[in-house]
Design a protein around this nucleic acid. Structure first.
Lengths: 273, 273
DNA sequence: GCCTAGGTCCCGTAC
DNA sequence: GTACGGGGCCTAGGC
């Protein structure tokens, strides 16, 4: 397999053998750290020590290490989505030499954490120039669901009016609050984009209890809107007389299902997941 | 900068220019996928489309892409610890060609998710052979703290006896339960290795409420043991008459602080964070 | 397989 | 800055 000279493009290979001593290599690498958009990639035989909120030691093994210009450190092995060791953005990295080995220290101010890497062997060093793409679209997040409810109205009571969103309580923020003045009902809405577990029901419950204490006289109804629900969570929903709405049903609204069909369906707890 | 032939070691550079047509390159890359411990690394100008639980589109930009032999896909930009797009272990990846561009599709059975990448330009392709290190030590996790409490006893009441751990309730699992029979007190212990917020206090509260209903007559006391606590959480602790213990204090025990000093300190809520 | 909870979670956002 | 909650969270452990 051949070899490629790269000058005009966005990946430079650092020829390890050129460097007579580690000092030169160390200095070069330190120059690349924090260079705008320059990512250092090292494949080598390395040992890792991490000390901080937790601590870990990993003996020498073949791993891939990356340093990003924002101070991110990533060390990957052959498996898993997550790095075996890392340092989040903002950490301060620098190369040194110890016992004739290249050494990397990455420190994080917050948490007083550090990762130290010792390199016994280097298989490849490269410097890539990468982008930060700004216009990254993501759809389907909780916020969008909340917005959809706001724009289409509360499915279980079309006469209820939105009176607040992201309402702060000592227990956290209530996603949405609706009120039907004629029937003297307040709806406390909790939205989860994922499948709801017991924690979600309890979160809703403490909002409802809080509002019961702070708006006496009103009927408070808790409404959980989520993408499915676990068995235990269903039981709690029934225990507390809350209402569960599956997000799928809301999506069908958007696809022009008749609204009155909805009112009928939603008059009872909808537990289909 | 020079170039390095690599045969004996653990990084092979794939010379892109050697391949007259993309077909050959595509076939080569497909051969490397799922090779034992072979990680494919591609630095290039790529477009990404993701569809699944959420969805996203990222226009062409310079990014670094990795495929691990366990089916992990990672795509990184110049910033951030997390990849901009990814696929967890177990996904099925294969290279193809579309509109004279190299194309990668990674599919995940579960969730029916897929990531599709189109490469307009390739700056570097490498194949690394990495390890999976088995003996990775981690200390300081919540379980260790729980074990420590079990071995040293409940600091606030040395006469209380451990009657259970990981006790299942409809609201989740209680970390530890202690009982002092003489004083007819049951302690519900919630342990957090991190700084406690309102969610942790509420979690404790629902355990306490549940146990109040299911062990009538006993005095139930909620005890939160955590690594610091937020202001709002303190207020809730006081509201509910719970006890907060800072994990630091427990650690001091281990360092041979006198136990009776402890009993004094712990007889009141310890709110120092 | 589902469910539950922890994590060096990371990350954005509001205060 | 801190605090709080979401996330395509991921990952390990139970059942």
């Amino acid at each position: 397999m051949g070899c490629r000279e790269s000058g005009e493009d966005y990946y430079k290979i650092v020829n390890i053998h050129i460097y007579k001593n580690l000092d030169e290599l160390k200095d070069l690498l330190n120059k690349y750290i924090y260079h705008k958009d320059h990512i250092i990639i090292i494949v080598g035989y390395m040992k890792i020590i991490y000390r901080g909120r937790a601590s870990s030691e990993a003996d020498y093994a073949r791993r891939l290490l990356m340093i990003k210009p924002d101070g991110t450190l990533l060390i990957h092995e052959a498996r898993g989505r997550d790095p075996v060791n890392w340092q989040p953005p903002g950490s301060i990295c620098s190369f040194g030499i110890e016992n004739q080995e290249l050494k990397l220290r990455c420190q994080r101010q917050q948490y007083n954490e550090e990762v130290i890497v010792y390199f016994k062997d280097l298989f490849h060093i490269g410097v890539a120039i990468l982008d930060v793409s700004n216009f990254f679209e993501v759809k389907g997040v909780e916020r969008d669901i909340v917005d959809q409810i706001i724009s289409t109205g509360l499915p279980i009571d079309r006469n209820a009016k939105l009176v607040g969103k992201e309402i702060s309580t000592p227990h956290g923020k209530i996603d949405l609050v609706y009120i039907n003045n004629e029937r003297n009902i307040m709806y406390i809405i909790e939205v989860k984009n994922e499948k709801a577990g017991v924690a979600a029901v309890d979160q809703l419950r403490r909002y409802v209890e809080y509002m019961k204490q702070h708006s006496r006289g009103r009927n408070i109804i808790g409404v959980l809107i989520a993408n499915g629900i676990s068995d235990e969570a269903i039981k709690l929903i029934l225990t507390y007389d809350f209402i569960f709405l599956n997000i799928r049903n809301l999506r069908i609204i958007k696809r022009e299902r008749k609204l009155d069909t909805y009112l009928k369906d939603s008059s009872v707890n909808s537990l289909s997941s």
